[in-house]
Amino acid sequence: MGCNRREFLKIAGLSTLLGAGGNAAFELLRPGALEASEFVEGKRSLEAGRWSMVIDMRKCLGERNCTKCMDACHETHNVPDFGNRKDEVKWIWKEPFENTFPDQENEFQTEELEGKPFVVLCNHCEHPPCVRVCPTQATFKRKKDGLVMMDYHRCIGCRFCMAACPYGSRSFNWRIPRTAHNLQQHRNPEYPTRTKGVVEKCTFCDERLAVGLGPKCVEACDEKALIFGDLDDPKSVVREIIRNNYSIRRKPELGTNPSVFYLI
């Protein structure tokens, strides 16, 4: 949408008078020009056109009670654990195959897949419904690398995104996170704890990418079952794997175009 300087100033001035501030006009006239929670990238930051993850369930030891990726993630990101389902917050966790892929309904399933725990997390969709519905752009898709991000300082806690996410990837802070027993015992000072009343989820470790590190869950997996890479780069390792192995994604029929691929 084009507008000249005069028009822009007029609308910006008018919206300032209305109490909304020049920022509001900026967001209406140049949508997406200002992203919530912007920061300056470090020199060593990892760059990509569209970050994605391949989860090789043939290597995953989830069914042997391995929880290394989730423990590492939740510890790094100060994810509160209240010990009950009602107040639960989780970024990466396990769900049985049948629940992860309800559209793969099969009366007779192979023994290895039946009830097999799958690793689930935010799919960082190309067309994220959560971003579409957010009334404040507190959750937004980062233009440069496709990460679906959260601004905890802008979120008003309306939870529209939780209703919109077809993957159940989002959690709300029903209580003060720091009162959770695990965070009272131990907190990672490198990452902020959240306030009550905001939504949170996996961000593919944007804070680690900024300093040249891959996601924590990928690093924590000894079996190398989690592979992280650039989907836009035909020569990337994820593209290589997807080219040579049959992969499936969660609910692709919804048109969200998830960036997390599963090898089964």
């Binding site: 967001e27 957010c134 404040t136 008003i156 806690g157 939870r159 529209f160 306030t195 939504v199």
Partner: peptide, 28 residues
């Protein structure tokens, strides 16, 4: 709607960051 918000004091963010693609913006 107000009592349902997790961060009610930030409710003006809906006006401060108007988002026409959100149905909630239009509902307001």
């Amino acid at each position: 709607i107000f009592v349902d918000l997790g961060q009610p004091f930030r409710v003006m963010n809906v006006v401060l960051h108007p988002t026409p693609n959100s149905v909630m913006f239009w509902d307001m």
